[in-house]
């Protein structure tokens, strides 16, 4: 069998408002580059084929599977990861709601759910509990049974729009 050249590319990636230069093979996924080249290990990898959603990040504001994007494709885009949510050591309202509702147990899926929820709430601020449930069905959690995740995101949606959950 042949071994194609690894064709390294010098990229500038914009992640969490910082510019990073990396040299990577084009086959390297954005998830791997975030985790292993930039050492932003909050983004997790659970399936590498776009189903579990543990690697969900925001690309130009929209939730995306970082395992279904080659890092070379993300040049020029604004990438946001779970590391961007807390500010000055303070948890964001969504992170706080996850804690309050016990929406995480082992915590492995949590960064993906947080980033998915941020993307969903940004686009659908008026989302109902059932809208949220349907949107969150994009990601897998093996610990919680989902109920408390839905609760946490719904509570955040309600507080952001100034209504009661």
């Amino acid at each position: 069998m042949s071994h194609p050249v690894n064709d390294p590319h010098l990229l500038t990636l914009s992640v969490n408002d910082a510019e990073h230069e990396v040299v990577v093979e084009p086959r390297r996924t954005l998830a791997d580059v975030l985790r292993h080249d930039l050492r932003l290990t909050g983004t997790h990898v659970g399936c590498e084929h776009g189903v579990c959603g543990a690697c969900t990040v925001l690309i130009d504001g929209a939730p995306a599977r970082a395992c279904l994007v080659f890092a070379v494709q993300a040049e020029g885009a604004d990438v946001r990861t779970v590391e961007s949510l807390a500010r000055d050591g303070e948890l964001s309202d969504l992170q706080q709601a996850f804690g309050d509702h016990h929406a995480l147990q082992c915590g492995f899926c949590t960064p993906g759910f947080l980033m998915l929820a941020e993307g969903v709430l940004a686009e659908q601020p008026d989302a109902s509990r059932e809208d949220i449930r349907e949107a969150l069905s994009a990601n897998l959690c093996r610990c919680t049974g989902y109920q408390t995740i839905v609760d946490a995101v719904h509570a955040t949606a309600c507080s952001r729009r100034g209504t009661n959950a």
Binding site: R39, T41, G42, T81, V82, E83, L85, Q95, F98, G107
Partner: peptide
């Protein structure tokens, strides 16, 4: 009492350390 979980702050902020996070 349902006290706040001690595990949560690191897991919520991406600062947990799982095996694949080790280099």
């Amino acid at each position: 009492a349902s006290v706040p979980r001690r595990e949560d702050p690191r897991l919520l902020t991406g600062r947990g350390r799982f095996v694949d996070d080790i280099a």
